[in-house]
Computed example of a mutant assay.
Amino acid sequence: MTISLEDIETLLLLYKYKSVEQVSKEMNISDGTVKYRVKNIESFLNRKIVKSLGTRKVEFTDYGEIVIEEFRKIKNILEKLKVYGEQMTYEIKIASGEVAGIYFLPQIAKAFKDKYAEYKINIEVLSTLDVFRSLEDGSADIGFVASINFDEIKNTLSNYRVIRLVKNKLVVIGKKGSLRKDKISVKEILNFPYIGRKYNSGIQAEVRKILESEGFSENDLNIVYKLDNSSSVINAVIEGIGISIVSFIQAKRYIEAGLLDYAELDTKVESYLYAIDPWKGKNEIINKFINFTINFIIENLNI
């Protein structure tokens, strides 16, 4: 046997008005329903709460007075919880590599918050390896990366749900006027001064995979600089220090502004952007954000 919130509210109103008829009018229920709810509470507690429901003015027993006091506390707690629930915000902590974290996640986060005002989204842009470290130590709820091609995560990748979001087209970029071909082979890249990223970069991991697919290694590149972020790489390329391989998403606005040449990379290796879910589909909030992200990319982003 249980009692409901309606039972509690009925009893509190009965204590207020001391009249079954008045309670039935206010709650828009029958006198019989009022009496039934009171009897239900008495059966649940196995004690008399009111002396009689048949009199014009309802009188409560001493025990009934105690019950009313406790029920008031319960109702106050429930009302506070209701208000708290209405005002509650849920934080989604995102650890992301540079491509997603700078070039499209901010748009997605804004659209998500516009639709779901109760959510707060915090995006931290990190290297790909640091994204996985954040997922491992629980400081991030979801990750976005440009590569899963790291020896350091091979043994733990099965701990995550890996969602392939969208193809990440990699291109060769050079100073304006320096690239005279529309497509460049991996072998040809070895002849140029090369500006690379640090080891923990997702894009650099994809470059290593591309080199290995052609029988080369990172050591075969003529690396003149290894930089921390794509902006530094692109600026160095614009200055004519060397060429590089970057995501077209990163280079697009510089190409459109006439600051860079670019060429297709002649490779069969395909690169993607991934969502990394440490909850493996068991967190409804993260599932909602992932599904929203997938739909937003399909409907709004030309990448």
Results as ranks from 00 to 15, higher is better:
residue 185 S to F: 07
residue 211 L to D: 02
residue 195 I to A: 08
residue 186 V to H: 09
residue 209 K to P: 00
residue 187 K to I: 06
residue 188 E to M: 05
residue 182 D to A: 10
residue 181 K to E: 14
residue 202 G to N: 06
residue 206 E to R: 09
residue 178 S to K: 15
residue 181 K to S: 10
residue 186 V to R: 13
residue 203 I to D: 00
residue 176 K to D: 09
residue 210 I to V: 14
residue 207 V to Q: 02
residue 208 R to A: 11
residue 190 L to K: 12
residue 188 E to D: 15
residue 177 G to M: 11
residue 188 E to R: 13
residue 177 G to D: 09
residue 213 S to V: 03
residue 179 L to R: 04
residue 208 R to D: 08
residue 203 I to R: 03
residue 191 N to R: 13
residue 195 I to T: 06
residue 201 S to W: 04
residue 186 V to Y: 05
residue 181 K to A: 10
residue 181 K to F: 08
residue 197 R to F: 11
residue 209 K to D: 00
residue 211 L to N: 03
residue 186 V to F: 03
residue 206 E to I: 03
residue 192 F to D: 08
residue 183 K to D: 07
residue 207 V to Y: 00
residue 191 N to L: 08
residue 211 L to W: 01
residue 205 A to T: 01
residue 202 G to Q: 09
residue 188 E to V: 02
residue 185 S to W: 13
residue 196 G to W: 00
residue 201 S to M: 09
residue 206 E to D: 05
residue 178 S to T: 11
residue 184 I to N: 07
residue 209 K to Q: 06
residue 212 E to K: 14
residue 191 N to G: 09
residue 182 D to R: 15
residue 207 V to H: 01
residue 193 P to R: 15
residue 209 K to T: 00
residue 176 K to H: 10
residue 180 R to W: 08
residue 190 L to Y: 04
residue 200 N to G: 06
residue 195 I to E: 07
residue 198 K to I: 14
residue 177 G to S: 08
residue 209 K to S: 03
residue 198 K to F: 11
residue 184 I to L: 14
residue 213 S to L: 08
residue 191 N to Y: 09
residue 205 A to Q: 03
residue 205 A to G: 01
residue 195 I to C: 04
residue 211 L to P: 00
residue 199 Y to A: 08
residue 202 G to V: 02
residue 180 R to Y: 07
residue 190 L to N: 12
residue 198 K to R: 15
residue 192 F to I: 00
residue 203 I to M: 10
residue 209 K to C: 00
